[in-house]
Simulated assay, not measured.
Amino acid sequence: MAMKKVTVTLPEELVEALGAAAREDAVPLSRLVASAAERELRRRVGRRLVADWQAEHGAFSPEELAAARAEMANADAQMFGVSGTAAA
């Protein structure tokens, strides 16, 4: 993947916290920031897909939302080794 150097302005406290997190994970700060940016773009795509689906099929029911939350909590529990209620 090609890389491009950019300049961004962030609050000093945020930069310090990001730097500490990057050091803790032993990754370059740029990789940590790029990963966060990628997650945000994926969330935006997901929200757009959900909005498109609901525009065509109607809003999700409370039961559908509860089932989806339970499924996500179970997936989190498997991935991160936490209880389903703690992951929710």
Rank of each mutant, 00 (worst) to 15 (best):
R42V: 01
A59Y: 12
A21V: 08
A88C: 10
E63L: 07
P11C: 07
F80G: 02
A34W: 11
F80V: 06
F60Q: 09
K5M: 13
A66C: 12
P62L: 09
E63S: 12
A51D: 07
A21E: 15
R43S: 03
G58P: 10
A34N: 14
E64V: 09
R44A: 04
T7E: 15
A73G: 13
A55Y: 12
A59M: 13
E12S: 03
P62W: 11
A36L: 08
M79G: 02
M79N: 08
T85K: 11
A77F: 03
A75D: 14
P62Q: 07
E40R: 01
D76M: 12
R43W: 01
A22T: 06
R47P: 06
T7Q: 14
K5V: 10
A66E: 15
M79R: 08
K5T: 15
G46R: 04
R69G: 10
D25I: 00
M3W: 07
L32N: 01
A66I: 07
A67S: 13
V45W: 02
Q54D: 00
A22M: 10
D76G: 15
G46P: 00
L65C: 13
P62G: 14
T9G: 10
E16L: 01
E38T: 04
E64C: 09
R39T: 05
W53N: 01
L29V: 02
G58L: 09
R69H: 09
R69C: 04
A66H: 15
A21N: 10
E56D: 15
E24H: 11
A26Q: 10
K5L: 09
R69K: 13
V33R: 01
G58Q: 13
V27E: 06
E71L: 09
M1D: 08
A55P: 11
E64Q: 15
D76C: 12
Q78N: 05
K4W: 02
V50Q: 00
L10V: 12
S83C: 03
H57P: 04
A73M: 05
V8L: 06
V6H: 14
L10Y: 13
G84Q: 11
E38N: 01
E16T: 09
S35R: 15
R31D: 15
L65E: 14
E38S: 05
T7N: 14
A87H: 00
M3L: 03
R39Y: 03
R23N: 13
A70G: 10
S83D: 07
G81H: 03
G81W: 01
A2T: 06
A88E: 11
A59N: 14
A73Q: 15
L41A: 06
R31Y: 14
A67F: 09
L65F: 12
L49M: 08
E16W: 01
A21T: 07
A17K: 09
H57D: 04
S83L: 01
G46S: 01
A34L: 08
L10F: 11
R69S: 08
S35D: 11
M1F: 04
L41T: 04
A70T: 13
D76P: 05
L49E: 14
D25S: 05
